[in-house]
Computed example of a mutant assay.
Amino acid sequence: VWGELKRLEQQLSQNRAASGDLVSRLKLLEEKLTQPKAPLTTELKPRLLASATDSRVSYSAERLDLLSPKSSAERLVFSFPQTSSAVEVLLPAGASEVEAASRLDRALRKEHIQARLNELGKLELSVPDQHRRKLDEPVLLSGEGIRIPAGNPVPVQFKPKAGQLTQLGEGLDKGELRQEQQRLKRLLGEIEQSVRELKQFRQKMVKQLDRVKARSQNLQQEELEQLQGKLSTQLKEGGFMGTMSGLLAQANVSRQSVVALLT
């Protein structure tokens, strides 16, 4: 990603427009590297360094007006077929867009969903990667009010927000050069910071590996079982994806040594 963006930066500095081919390459690159089991999150952060709560997927709600003030109070119910659960939101008469977004956020957090106003003042929902099916699948919306009249639930499909590289390509395609140059500069800085963090992470692992080689030789069976239990818990919490396989591939140590190292 960094290499592709550096080439794009050079191209834009020479006042050359981004070609349609480059825009397509950015989108394909993003799709390849940010799939659920791919190495990067949708924000182009390494999954290895991101905890389960840091890795979130964002969705736009532009097709559904949930923010504009209304003359009467409303009751909205979001039902999630995937988990057979539901939350209720009460919107007072005349509620501002900020207050409506805040009330939606408080209610939906019970389902691990955050609601906020994005930089354009539009409603945006986000959910941890492991719960993304809640918004990938249609949500049933019912209630009483102007937006959603009483009656049968209405299925609503939220649209996944375009990733950083796709947004960059789309902006350049529209001729928004100055805005996308700023995005490009920010992305390059974030990627370079991620590379530094990954190098620090690897150095830390190598140092711990040297220490664990000695102590792992004297592990008792009971102690090993305790370490394995702690490791299992940590892996479920996220942030260690790929670490064990990576260490086993890079170092001539036993699986027991790696288990001890990661705890």
Rank of each mutant, 00 (worst) to 15 (best):
Q200V: 02
N252K: 10
L140Q: 07
L184E: 00
Q11N: 00
A73F: 00
A214Y: 06
L209D: 13
L125K: 03
D173A: 14
E62D: 14
Q221W: 06
V23H: 01
L76H: 14
A95D: 01
R47W: 13
L104R: 00
Q10F: 05
K6Y: 04
Q179G: 01
I146L: 13
Q11E: 08
E176G: 00
L224A: 01
L66F: 11
R183A: 07
S85E: 06
I148V: 13
A93M: 00
L108H: 01
G20V: 04
K110Y: 12
F78G: 10
H112M: 07
A162K: 13
K159D: 11
P81E: 15
L76D: 09
E176Y: 03
G171Q: 06
E170H: 14
V206A: 15
L235G: 05
Q157G: 04
L188R: 05
V23R: 06
S13M: 05
L184Y: 13
E192A: 02
A251P: 07
G94C: 03
Q234E: 13
S19A: 10
N118I: 15
V258I: 09
A150C: 06
L227Y: 12
R196Q: 02
R211A: 12
L224S: 00
K37V: 00
E222N: 00
Q10M: 06
L123T: 04
P81S: 14
T166K: 15
Q256N: 07
R132W: 08
R196T: 11
T34Y: 06
E111C: 10
A260Y: 13
K207M: 09
W2P: 07
G121E: 14
S194V: 01
